[in-house]
């Protein structure tokens, strides 16, 4: 057990060591948190399925340096994001802003959910109606009742 946990710790430790590319010192914990959040939400333009926090592409490194520099010089999150978008487009944001071009992206989950709800509702209603109506006509129903009565007696 101890050996296993030692192995687990070892493996995790090695991966953590690989993930750290370079470190920036922040005296202010709030600023460190902003660095963490922003570097996780900014997308690396070169290696497109990674954020700049875990990419070791040179461009991601430059963007992290830029992010650190701008945080240290007192820029707000909006200013930093604007700076990045101005150069690399909406693409750099993993959480894109709402605009006519991104409207489809933001609204499609809501629309799909509404569509699913509508489909569910109409299916349920149809099956309820089908359950209420056994498909027999009045004459047949009377005959059935009579037959059942005869059997019971």
């Amino acid at each position: 057990m101890l050996r296993w946990s030692a192995l687990v710790v070892f493996v995790l430790w090695v991966q953590a060591a690989q993930a750290v590319i370079e470190t920036y010192e922040f005296s202010d914990p709030a600023m460190r948190e902003r660095y963490r959040v922003l570097s996780n939400e900014l997308r690396c333009p070169k290696c497109q399925n990674q954020n700049i926090a875990d990419s070791n592409a040179p461009i991601a490194q430059d963007l992290r340096a830029q992010l650190n520099e701008q945080l240290q010089s007192g820029k707000s999150n909006e200013e930093i994001v604007d700076y990045m978008v101005q150069r690399y487009g909406e693409f750099v944001l993993y959480r894109p802003r709402f605009s006519p071009t991104t409207a489809v992206l933001w609204l499609s989950p809501v629309l799909l959910l509404a569509l699913a709800g509508l489909t569910l509702w109409s299916t349920v209603r149809r099956s309820r109606r089908a359950a209420g109506n056994s498909g027999l006509q009045d004459v047949e129903r009377e005959r059935l009742a009579k037959l059942l009565q005869e059997r019971e007696s």
Partner: peptide
């Protein structure tokens, strides 16, 4: 240092 590259939006 890639500063102009950054302003241009160069990624490689």
């Amino acid at each position: 240092d890639g500063t102009l590259g950054l302003d241009l939006g160069v990624y490689g």
